[in-house]
Amino acid sequence: MRVLGRASSINVRKVLWALDELEESYDREDWGLPIRDPKVPEFLALNPNGQVPVIIEHDGFTLWESNAILLYLARTRSSLMPTDDHAYGQALQWLIWQATELNPPWGYALNALARKTPGYDDPAKIGESIERWTRKMEMLEEQLSPTTAFVAGDSLSLADIVLGLSIHRWFRTPMPHKAFPKIEAYYTRLRQRPAGARWMPDKIV
């Protein structure tokens, strides 16, 4: 399998972490700014959105959109999603929530504080972004179970991979952090896994 995307991308790391958990071999190629512009005909022929990641299977099958790739891997490799219907629903719930609810609030704060992106310097907007992000983390703290190791039971699922990467971004962004004991314990468990440690290093936000 080929994986096209720079490892600094959180969406690329979702896929790489899943592949490592599956012990699947792959070749990764750097795509995505500032390394390699994906808005070129060669890449747009694979993904018309010009975004990473993209995977190319051994038989030439091509797929884009990180969560679609994750669900495809879980289905074709018969792993990383629970077989119990209720647990499967919970894992899918958190997988979707991470993308639609947890991720959007961090945009301004991340660009201002971690990436130092020009134009992201409005203190009010930074504060609002942090406040909204914190509220979502509060929700996760309340929902995490103290009796199970992972969000959908006792086994790692795709939901844990995407949540782990978002939590990693929370802790690595230089800003005030409210104490979340359950999230901290959960994050520690995920980083104790070899693939979790590899794709949530201190140097990557």
Score class of each variant (00 low, 15 high):
Trp106Asn: 04
Trp133His: 01
Arg75Ala: 15
Ala91Lys: 06
Leu92Tyr: 03
Glu101Met: 05
Leu113Thr: 15
Ala68Ile: 05
Thr83Ile: 05
Pro118Gly: 12
Asp122Ile: 03
Gln93Cys: 06
Gly127Glu: 13
Thr100Tyr: 07
Pro118Thr: 15
Ser129Cys: 08
Gly89Phe: 07
Ala74Ser: 12
Glu128Thr: 01
Trp97Asp: 12
Ser66Asn: 11
Tyr88Gly: 10
Lys116Met: 10
Leu71Gln: 15
Gly89Asn: 06
Ala68Phe: 08
Leu92Thr: 07
Leu92Ser: 00
Glu131Ala: 09
Gln93Met: 11
Tyr72Pro: 14
Leu110Trp: 10
Thr76Gln: 07
Trp133Ile: 01
Glu101Thr: 10
Leu73Ile: 05
Tyr88Ser: 13
Glu101Gln: 11
Ala114Met: 12
Ala74Asn: 04
Arg75Asp: 15
Ala114Val: 10
Gln93Gly: 03
Thr83Asp: 09
Gly127Cys: 07
Ile69His: 09
Leu95Val: 06
Ala87Gly: 04
Ala112Asp: 15
Trp64Tyr: 15
Ala74Glu: 14
Leu110Gln: 12
Gly107Ser: 14
Ala112Arg: 09
Asn103Met: 08
Ala109Phe: 08
Met81Leu: 13
Gly89Glu: 06
Ile96Thr: 06
Glu65Met: 15
Ile130Met: 00
Asn67Ala: 14
Gly89Gln: 05
Lys116Gln: 15
Thr100Ala: 11
Glu65Tyr: 14
Ala74Ile: 00
Thr83Gly: 02
Ala91His: 02
Thr117Glu: 10
Ala91Trp: 05
Gly89Thr: 04
Leu110Ile: 06
Gly89Val: 02
Leu71Pro: 12
Gln90Trp: 00
Glu101Tyr: 10
Trp97Pro: 02
Ile96Tyr: 03
Ser78Lys: 07
Leu102Gln: 11
Ser66His: 12
Arg132Lys: 14
Pro123Ala: 07
Asp85Phe: 04
Ser66Trp: 15
Tyr120Gly: 03
Leu95Ala: 00
Ala112Thr: 13
Glu131Trp: 04
Ile126Cys: 07
Asp121Val: 13
Leu102Asp: 05
Gly107Pro: 04
Leu70Thr: 11
Pro123Leu: 09
Ala112Gln: 13
Gly119Val: 10
Ser78Cys: 07
Gln90Ala: 01
Glu101Ile: 01
Trp133Cys: 02
Arg75Gly: 14
His86Ala: 00
Pro104Thr: 13
Glu101Asp: 14
Trp97Asn: 08
Gly119Asp: 02
Leu71Ala: 14
Ile69Gly: 02
Tyr88His: 14
Leu92Arg: 00
